[in-house]
Nucleic acid binder design. Structure first.
Lengths: 155, 155
DNA sequence: GCCCCCGGGTTGACGTATCAACTCGGAGGT
DNA sequence: ACCTCCGAGTTGATACGTCAACCCGGGGGC
C-alpha cells in the first residue's frame, strides 16, 4: 500500500478518465440542445413513460432512476414548473407524493428517445467493434460488481 | 437511420451507463470525505503542483484541466477563499490572471494523491485483469477518437 | 394504549456547471 | 495614428447535486 500506480495502469486511467469527461460532456450537451432536456429530465421522463398510467410515487421513481430523494424532489419541482409533469397526492395515503407525466412531458420524451438512441449509436457503439462492445460490457459489470461488494464487505 | 438499438447494443449501453454513474459517484464521494477536496479541486491542485513555481496563468490552467474559462474562474475564486491558492496578476501584463498554489494547497494535494491512487486501484484497476485493462484503454481511445473527429468532420 | 422508531418526503444552504453578455488591452492592417 | 478585431478574463443568472436537518404519520414492542 502507499506505492503508486505503474505506467501501464496510469495509461489505462488516463485514457478512461479523458474519455469519460469528453463523452459525457458531449452527450449531455447535444441532448440539451436537440431536445431541450437535461440528463436527469430524460431519466425521469423515461421512467414515467414506462410506468402504468404515467404515474409513480417518489420513492419508486427514486429506485428506478437511482436519484437520492432530495435530488429527486428538487428536480421534480423544477420539472413541474416547466409543465413536464404534475405532482399529486393520493387520497388514501396522505404521505404519498406522486409524479404524473403530462402530455407535454410525453411529447418531449417521445421526440427525445430516437435522438438519444442515435447519439448513443453514433458516439459510442459505432466507435467500437463487436469484441470491444463485449469487452466493455464485461468491464462495466466487473467494476459494478466491485462497487456493490463494498457495502457487503466489512467496513 | 431512425431505427432503434438492438438488444445486444442496449446491454452494452445499460452496463456502461450504470457503471459510470456508480463509479463516479463513489470516487468523488470518497475523495471528498477522505481529503476534503472535490474532483475539480483535485484537478486544479494537481496541475498547479506540476507547474514551475506552482503558478499558471488562467488560460494555461484551462488547457491542462479542460475547464471552460468561466467554470475555471468561478472555481479559482472559491478555492482562493479556502486558502488553497492565491490569485495574482503579472506586473508586465495587466491582463494576466495567475493562480499560485499556497502551502495549504500543496499540503492538501500531497496528502490527497496517494489516497486518490488507492481509490483508482481499488475500485477500477483491481476489478480488471490485464486483458480487460488493455481493452479499456483501446475502447477509451476509440471513443475519444470518434469525439475528436466530430469537429474535423463536416457538420 | 402508549411510546418510540422508521421511512417517505420536504426544505434550505451551499458547492458546482453552463451559458450569455460584457470589459479591456493589445496586435495588425491600412 | 486610428480602428478594428480578438482573446483573456469577469460577471450574473440559472440549473444541477449533495448534505444535514427536519416533519409527520404509521407500526411494533411492551
Amino acid at each position: 500500500m502507499g506505492n503508486g500506480i505503474d505506467d501501464g495502469d496510469r495509461a489505462v486511467w488516463d485514457a478512461f478518465f479523458a474519455m469519460q469527461m469528453d463523452f459525457w460532456r458531449h452527450l449531455s450537451r447535444i441532448l440539451q440542445t436537440e431536445t431541450g432536456l437535461s440528463e436527469p429530465d430524460y431519466a425521469i421522463l423515461l421512467a414515467l413513460r414506462d410506468a402504468p398510467g404515467g404515474r409513480l410515487r417518489a420513492y419508486q421513481l427514486s429506485e428506478v432512476t437511482d436519484f437520492e430523494k432530495s435530488r429527486l424532489h428538487h428536480h421534480l419541482r423544477r420539472m413541474s414548473v416547466r409543465g413536464l409533469l404534475t405532482r399529486e397526492s393520493e387520497a388514501d395515503d396522505p404521505r404519498a407524493a406522486v409524479a404524473a407525466i403530462t402530455p407535454e412531458g410525453t411529447a418531449a420524451i417521445t421526440a427525445a428517445v430516437p435522438k438519444r438512441e442515435e447519439h448513443i449509436r453514433r458516439w459510442l457503439l459505432d466507435a467500437l467493434d463487436d469484441g470491444q462492445k463485449a469487452a466493455l460490457t464485461d468491464i462495466s459489470e466487473a467494476v459494478l460488481r466491485g462497487l456493490k461488494d463494498k457495502t457487503a464487505s466489512a467496513e
